Computed example of a mutant assay.
Amino acid sequence: MSTDLRPLTAALPDLASWTAALRDRPIPLLASSAAALAALAEAEETHGNVDAHRIDVAIDDDPLATLWVLDLAARQRHVRQVTPAETITSAVMMLGIGTFFRASAEARVVEDLLANQPQAREGLAAVLRRAHRSARFALGFGIHRMESDVTLLRIAALLHDVTEMLLWCHAPALIGEVAARLHADPTLRSETAQRDVLHVSLIDLEQSLLRAWHLPERLLRLTDDHAEGLALVQPQRRLVKLAVQLARHTQSGWDNAALPDDIEELSQLLNLSPMAVRGLLGELDS
């Protein structure tokens, strides 16, 4: 892993270059997650009563911490362990409590990386708020449909925009330029702005990174906006995509022009009337 934490200030030429650059940089944790893990590590050392579930509860609202744990488990997964970890709990159980806490003590912290960059902290905070809403929506939709893997659906929605979060940490000026262009021109497509500034789209970069980190195939499929064919019409895949779209389209209010189409598609997926869907969204967002 690279020890050079200087921000990337010039766009890299292609997807392979971006993947290599971000793959080798640390996945930082939010300060709140780092503090929670430090407290749990102390409790484990003193009382020996910390289990994987307590760790999950402490950090499962932090997309970056979730990604960090899954990546850590993937890096250390034994060749005979066929099934990769898909949740924080399963990852910590695979690693072992002692190994996990030794690694967490060395983890980088977002607020340290961005100590003198208030705009980057603000930009990251906005993406985190959107991710939390996406995760709430996905969990609520999954429960309504009585899906068996609601935890995985929530994690997929939480991680959907994690590449944007990493860019706020490691290339804040570049992702800030993307955000500025989108703010200046509401009609500009996000992917167009990303390719103009970064030379890649964030969804392509995210899929490339998730594969480079050897994350579970199911998470890759659930977070892939470019999925085609059968993958596109899978209910779980549609559920995550709609959760993310709704969080994005309503981040500034409930009058976005794309919202009626989202609600109509969701009403079909959940077998609810559009009015009932609006009521469910209001409950989940409260």
Rank of each mutant, 00 (worst) to 15 (best):
D225Y: 00
P26F: 05
E147L: 08
G176D: 03
L246C: 10
D51S: 09
V109N: 05
R75E: 09
W168E: 14
A212P: 05
A115Q: 08
G229R: 00
D196Y: 07
Q117H: 12
R121T: 12
D204M: 01
Q236L: 03
L230M: 10
A31L: 14
S17W: 00
L8S: 02
A180P: 08
L222M: 08
I203P: 04
W168S: 08
R54K: 14
T66G: 07
H47V: 04
H170F: 13
L158H: 01
M146E: 11
T163E: 05
K241W: 15
H199A: 01
L246Y: 01
E122L: 05
Q119I: 02
L153Y: 00
E265S: 15
H226G: 15
L139V: 03
L272I: 08
V79L: 12
A257E: 12
E122K: 02
A11D: 00
S208E: 10
L22H: 07
R23W: 00
V109M: 07
F100Q: 03
E283A: 14
D51L: 10
F101S: 10
V50W: 13
F101G: 09
T163Y: 04
E264Q: 15
T83W: 07
G229Q: 05
A65W: 00
D112C: 02
A243M: 10
V127Q: 07
R278F: 12
D61P: 07
L215N: 05
T46M: 11
W213P: 03
P13W: 14
F101N: 06
P260L: 06
R136E: 00
L239N: 00
R237I: 00
R130T: 14
V109T: 11
M165W: 00
M165I: 02
V277A: 04
L124R: 15
L272W: 03
W18I: 08
